[in-house]
Each structure stands twice: as structure tokens, then as C-alpha cells.
Amino acid sequence: MSNARVPGPVLVMGEALTDLVPDRDGSLLPHPGGAPANVAAGLARLGVRTAFAGVLGGDAFALAHEKRLSAAGVELDLCGRSARPTALAVASPTPAGTRYDFHLHDTATFRLTPQVMELERFSAVYVGGLAAVVHPAADAVAETACAAADSTLLVVDPNVREDRTVDPAAGLSRLRDLCTLAHVVKASDEDVQTLWPESMPDASCRRLADRGRLVVLTRGLRGSTAFLPSGVEISVPAVPVTVVNTIGAGDAFMAGLLAGLAAHTGVAGGQSTDITAAQAQDLLEGGARAAALVCAQSGSDASLLTLGAKPA
């Protein structure tokens, strides 16, 4: 792949919320997070012009989000503002993964508006995260995604989250619909198993790819696999790293993957996902390097992500 940039910026739409992460002494430390905000920050740090369409609140957490996104180089002209507070996600890391308890009611975070009129500015649009299933953001995300599917490269990360505040049936239905619209789907094996429990994740990915999509399945420490529309499957291992934290690793992988797509103008400049096996391997390796960098630090911030950076 060349190092050419996308012939236009990437639009990342969704939430910027605050993760409260346990410290070693048991106290909770706030970290700017939210899957789409993590992706936007990581993508900008990797040299891709990126715009974030979320909503920032009127509290100190929102100021931290704005500082983080601006420092990464993310464009915020499409980011809304509200006097309401920022949504919170209390993270509870366990050996089996991280559980989240969300505090979303009456926050600024999900008061998104559709971005249909702005799509001609962008070469690719990313949607996913909680904004895809939490109202009123979910309708705005769906409307934008439907328009993007017809006009640009639509990239979806379903990023399934289970919480008492989210209707599981309606939420999963919305995420399946987004995956069906997408030209590129990146999902974890757990996400895919939850969305399509009737079959194994690999079989579900093959069905999605068979309909003309590029599908990337992440498996944590077991690496990742790209399912190409041609039927070719490419797998790469995870990058070895001393794991300090896994929060935001999937989002960093997504940023690395998107940065690779940005370099491949034949994909990111239109809706074609017809890439070679070698190009798919490059995409997966870029995602794996980005995920490893985040796993080597505390919190979900992508501050270590830069072009050419390697995990210790």
C-alpha cells in the first residue's frame, strides 16, 4: 500500500464518554473514552485527517475530551455542544474481560444529529459503539449510515455492549442492520457470536463477506482474520506485548485498520472492498500494532499511537 492519504477526511460518528477505571488502590480514575472517540483520536494520531461528530457536555469531563481530541488533531467543527453532563462508564476489569456499567440518562453524549448533508466531504464514515443503540443517537446514526452506504465507504464496528439501560433485542437488531449496510465490518469474535448466535463467528463472517464486504474478525490474544469478498481468508497473530490494560484495544485496532484503508485509495476513495491478500495482511498487521500499543499502557487513550510507533 502507498502512503497516500484519503482524498478527503474520515468522519467518525458516535459517543465521547468517560471511563472510570479502577486504580491499584481501588480508587476510580477518569479516562476519556467511548469507542468512536477512541477511534477518532487514534486515527488522527496515525496521520489521517479525521472529523468527530459527537456531542460534548458542559462539565469538566467534556473539557478533557475536547483537549484530548484537539491534541490528537481531530477536527471538531461537526461536534455538538450541550450543557448536560458527560455519560460515564464504570469499568470493572476481570480475567475474562472488562464489564461496564453505564450512566447514560439525560446526558449530552447521545444527543447526536444526522450528518447526511455533510457526507460529500468524506471518503469514509465510521459508526459504532453505544451511539448506535442508545436513543436519541441511534436514529441519527442509522440515518447517517443509510446515506453513507450509498455515497461513500461505510465502516461499522458493532462493539456490542450489554447493560440494563440498553434494550438487548432492539440494540442487536440495529447493529445487525448496520453490519448489513456496511462495506467494511470489524468485530470481535464475542460481538459476532452475540449478533449471530446460531452459527460460529467464522461462518457468520464468511456470509457477510460473501455479499461483497471486507470483514475483519478480532480474537484478542489469538490475533485476527480478514474475510475478503473473493473468499480468501488471511490471519495474523497478535503482537506480543506485556498487557497492562485491554480497554480501548479494539478501538486502537480499528484506528490502525482505518489508517491502512486510508493509505489504500482504491478502497477508501470509493466503495470497493476488492483488495489483495497482501493488502489485507498489511491492514491486520497495522491494527495489531495499534492494539498492542494501547494494551501496553493504562487507560484507553491513544496517545502512544503515531506513524511507525512500535510496542515495547
Results as ranks from 00 to 15, higher is better:
K310D: 10
S230Q: 05
G286I: 01
A37F: 04
A16W: 04
G286C: 01
L214C: 08
G8W: 05
A291Q: 02
V127Y: 07
A296C: 06
G171T: 02
C79S: 11
A292K: 03
D167P: 12
E190A: 13
K310W: 05
D77F: 02
A132E: 06
P93I: 12
L78D: 15
R213F: 12
C179R: 02
L29V: 15
K186V: 01
I275V: 14
T98W: 10
P36K: 11
A60K: 09
T152W: 09
E120A: 07
C295D: 01
R174W: 03
M200V: 06
K67F: 05
V10W: 14
V21L: 14
S173A: 15
V294L: 08
S173T: 13
V133K: 09
S272C: 12
V125H: 10
L56N: 14
V232I: 10
P22R: 08
A131E: 01
Q279H: 03
G286T: 00
Q115R: 15
E143P: 03
G299W: 00
C179W: 01
G42D: 10
P36Y: 13
L293F: 04
D101V: 08
P36C: 12
R81P: 00
G8P: 09
L17H: 01
V216M: 00
P201C: 00
G14K: 09
A255S: 15
L195S: 06
R45I: 01
L29D: 03
A137E: 07
P22N: 12
R289H: 13
S303D: 09
P201I: 00
S27Y: 05
